[in-house]
């Protein structure tokens, strides 16, 4: 593992065994994530993107291969994950949810309240700090989910389609917000999305994965200057060019994934 790498996966394979069948979710994944990089992963649904992220987060163990993560600062948590579904604890108030990671690390109440409030403000939720999640909309809960990961201040941020369930307007605002926070923090981020637009707006590099079994099909450098915003990049030639390239790669895989589903 060279010094600029923060995550490195070598020949990573994950096989889910059930009584009737074996599903190869990931096959021979080799990749490295550089320090401070924003890496986006796109791929057809069911290609093992989430599994890859869960292995990085330590929630799942690979069947074969090696994964290395660099710990630079022992004070900070190594990873924090933004989950895809509704993962906000219904029994905690909004603030308590956001400060959960800090509480697990034993940060004093007062300090973590302050940090939580800061991220609630960034997410436009400070008015709802004392609410319970069931009083909020799905989009608001997803923002709590994002705020919770940021508040814990990890070295590596793992995000699994965090804006997938949001409406377009809120998504645009949060993407911009995420970029702003990320550019300020320089946090290494692995970000799963099904939106090519989103990947191009956010990512330094984009990994395109194949349909099941999930393999790396292509790695693209985005190379557009930062700070970016959707309005100005969307009509720029590199954006259009990359969009077409990624879509052609993905299209094949999405069609393949459809065939796999039909066969089942």
């Amino acid at each position: 593992m060279n010094t600029t790498e923060v995550i490195r996966a070598e020949n990573l394979t994950k096989i889910f065994k059930t009584r009737e069948s074996e599903i190869v979710a990931l096959k021979n994944i080799n990749l490295s994530v550089k320090d401070g990089e924003f890496l986006c992963i796109v791929g057809p649904s069911g290609c093992g993107k989430t599994t890859l992220l869960r292995i990085f987060a330590g929630l799942e163990k690979q069947t074969l291969g090696k994964v290395y993560l660099r710990v630079k600062n022992t004070e900070k948590p190594l990873t924090a994950m933004v989950f895809q579904g509704d993962s906000v604890f219904p029994w905690m108030k909004v603030t308590e949810n956001v400060e959960y990671g800090l509480r697990m690390r034993g940060v004093p109440t007062r300090e973590r309240r302050e940090i939580a409030l800061k991220y609630l403000k960034l997410m436009g939720l400070e008015k709802f700090a004392g609410y319970y999640p069931h009083q909020l909309s799905g989009g608001m809960k997803q923002r709590i989910n994002v705020a919770r990961a940021f508040a814990s201040d990890p070295e590596i941020l793992l995000m699994d389609e965090p804006f997938g369930a949001l409406d377009e307007q809120n998504r645009l605002i949060l993407q911009q917000e995420l970029l702003r926070i990320w550019e300020g923090s320089g946090k290494t981020t692995v970000f799963i999305t099904h939106s090519i637009d989103e990947a191009l707006l956010l990512g330094d590099r984009i990994i395109v994965m194949t349909a099941q079994p999930g393999r790396i099909k292509a790695i693209l450098e985005v190379g557009m200057a930062r700070p970016r915003d959707m309005l100005s990049i969307k009509s720029s030639p590199p954006f259009v060019q990359l969009y077409r390239e990624i879509w052609e790669l993905l299209r094949e895989e999405v069609l393949k994934a459809r065939d796999i589903k039909l066969k089942k």
């Binding site: 869960r54 987060a57 330590g58 929630l59 948590p77 990873t79 924090a80 994950m81 989950f83 579904g85 509704d86 993962s87 604890f89 959960y100 990671g101 697990m104 690390r105 814990s152």
Partner: peptide, 12 residues
């Protein structure tokens, strides 16, 4: 998913 959240944030 709640157990995953707790684990991922290093809950004892």
């Amino acid at each position: 998913i709640y157990m995953d959240v707790a684990r991922s944030f290093g809950a004892s």
